[in-house]
């Protein structure tokens, strides 16, 4: 019987569980280094906390200088 399962994240995303601790750390650091390429795009962004932008809020987002 074919069973359909809801997909949230891709299989590549979920492959972290098959990595050893050292492999995970290597992949993790490599990903962080690669992700630096988007620093200009997200320089004003907040991922958590209470300063996260709210759609429709009139004031500017983070006034980082």
């Amino acid at each position: 019987m074919i069973r359909i399962q809801d997909q949230f994240l891709s299989e590549e995303d979920l492959d972290l569980k098959n990595l050893s601790w050292e492999e995970l750390n290597r992949v993790w650091t490599a990903w962080l280094k690669q992700a630096q390429s988007t620093n200009d795009l997200d320089k004003d962004a907040y991922s958590h906390g209470v300063f996260v932008a709210v759609e429709g809020y009139e004031d500017d987002t983070c006034p980082d200088v």
């Binding site: 979920l14 990595l19 958590h48």
Partner: peptide
């Protein structure tokens, strides 16, 4: 907490912070 806790649960790499 946050995205790095998601990594530690071995789900995804998705946060720089």
């Amino acid at each position: 907490s946050g995205g790095q806790a998601v990594v530690l649960h071995r789900l995804a790499l998705m946060s720089k912070d």
